[in-house]
Amino acid sequence: MSMCAEDRLALRLAIARLSFLSFAEKKLLEKKLDTVSRLALLSIDDLSFAIGRVINTRMWKPDVIEKRAERDMRLMEVLHIGCMFYDDERRPPLLDEIYDPPFALFYRGDPAVLSKPCAAVVGTRRPTGNGMRCTRELAFELAEAGFTVVSGLALGTDACAHAGTLLSSKGKTAAVLGSGVDTVSPASNKKIAAALLEAGGCIVGEYAPETAAEKWHFPQRNRLISALSLVTVVTEAPAGSGALITADFALEQNRELCFHECALSYPAVSAGAAGAGEHTGERAQKRAKAGREYRSVDRYIEEGARLIKNANDVIALLT
């Protein structure tokens, strides 16, 4: 890598870590600078002036930004982590259609699978036995039909979606993380992560190496799961679950949204117990403050979301 290319990469990696800036603000800042050392000279007032709004954050730490960028480059080389910035030709074109797309997309494995037709399969971390079976079957069928199955490598439904895809000889699956792609959490899913990489899939996310998973990262992660996919399929999910946040993003991004028929018999739905499973009062309050309506699976279906039973129904929805 030439010195000029290395300088540019360091600057871009440093800007990618500025999570308090929007995509447009990161691009604007990049245009005004040529090296990360120039970025490190900026005060918070300078940064505010550069992007055209007042920034009030404790996350701006210019004294460590150069060393952090250098460490990111070393880790990426050692751990075989790649990065697609917003102008990379390999970047999935669907990302350009959403509000505030990622400035950078870090990955391990083959990112080409993200540019093929993708279908997201998501749901609760506490699926029933029937839900696990239906998720594996659906993911397998989608893989057989040539889709890359996208999920979040979490416990429960996500793990079943990735595992079901890998049962197909054609199976390619992508895991979108809410942390750096060098960190797989929970540890129990490390075998699935290794298997999906070996099968030619990829692990992807917008967070730089050594970034720990934070609660607020997961809604951000969910928007990428739906953004990468032509269709989002929810298997089982109680009201207030992260899977339904993904469903909301799919609707906002003008993607197809459907629910597997097994969703209707999930206990937290059929019993009318919106407080069961993953629902918490704290999450409901945050959701209300964000202006999001707190809906059950039944409500989504009443409002027009499709009900499906297999991959053929999903394919018919897209044709």
Results as ranks from 00 to 15, higher is better:
residue 198 E to S: 09
residue 109 G to S: 06
residue 150 V to G: 08
residue 125 R to D: 08
residue 128 T to G: 10
residue 173 T to A: 04
residue 214 E to K: 15
residue 119 A to Q: 10
residue 162 H to R: 11
residue 114 L to D: 07
residue 114 L to A: 11
residue 170 K to A: 10
residue 145 A to M: 06
residue 139 A to Y: 13
residue 194 A to R: 11
residue 169 S to L: 01
residue 125 R to P: 08
residue 159 A to E: 13
residue 153 L to Y: 09
residue 204 V to P: 08
residue 148 T to V: 01
residue 137 E to T: 09
residue 106 F to Y: 14
residue 130 N to K: 15
residue 142 L to M: 09
residue 194 A to T: 00
residue 158 D to H: 08
residue 138 L to G: 05
residue 115 S to E: 03
residue 211 T to N: 13
residue 106 F to N: 05
residue 139 A to R: 12
residue 128 T to V: 00
residue 205 G to I: 05
residue 192 I to F: 08
residue 171 G to T: 05
residue 203 I to T: 00
residue 148 T to F: 06
residue 185 S to A: 06
residue 106 F to Q: 14
residue 113 V to S: 12
residue 182 D to L: 08
residue 170 K to S: 00
residue 162 H to T: 00
residue 159 A to V: 03
residue 210 E to M: 02
residue 193 A to W: 13
residue 139 A to W: 02
residue 154 A to N: 04
residue 109 G to H: 12
residue 127 P to T: 01
residue 157 T to K: 14
residue 212 A to H: 13
residue 136 R to D: 10
residue 205 G to F: 01
residue 110 D to M: 05
residue 199 A to M: 01
residue 142 L to Y: 13
residue 132 M to Y: 07
residue 173 T to V: 05
residue 167 L to M: 04
residue 156 G to I: 02
residue 185 S to K: 15
residue 190 K to C: 05
residue 216 W to A: 15
residue 111 P to G: 14
residue 207 Y to T: 06
residue 153 L to Q: 13
residue 182 D to Y: 12
residue 206 E to D: 01
residue 106 F to L: 05
residue 194 A to P: 01
residue 185 S to E: 13
residue 189 N to W: 09
residue 206 E to A: 05
residue 122 V to G: 10
residue 163 A to C: 07
residue 148 T to I: 01
residue 141 E to D: 04
residue 112 A to L: 11
residue 184 V to K: 10
residue 162 H to E: 03
residue 162 H to M: 02
residue 212 A to W: 15
residue 194 A to D: 13
residue 132 M to T: 13
residue 139 A to H: 13
residue 176 V to N: 13
residue 192 I to D: 07
residue 151 S to R: 14
residue 116 K to L: 04
residue 125 R to M: 04
residue 154 A to K: 14
residue 199 A to D: 14
residue 155 L to W: 13
residue 193 A to Q: 12
residue 130 N to G: 14
residue 114 L to I: 02
residue 118 C to W: 12
residue 200 G to Y: 02
residue 107 Y to R: 01
residue 173 T to D: 10
residue 179 S to T: 01
residue 197 L to P: 10
residue 214 E to S: 07
residue 193 A to V: 08
residue 126 R to M: 04
residue 175 A to F: 06
residue 203 I to Y: 12
residue 162 H to N: 02
residue 140 F to S: 14
residue 134 C to I: 02
residue 150 V to R: 08
residue 192 I to P: 01
residue 207 Y to S: 11
residue 132 M to F: 08
residue 147 F to K: 03
residue 176 V to Q: 00
residue 118 C to P: 01
residue 183 T to V: 02
residue 133 R to Y: 04
residue 180 G to S: 08
residue 171 G to E: 00
residue 186 P to N: 07
residue 183 T to K: 15
residue 181 V to T: 10
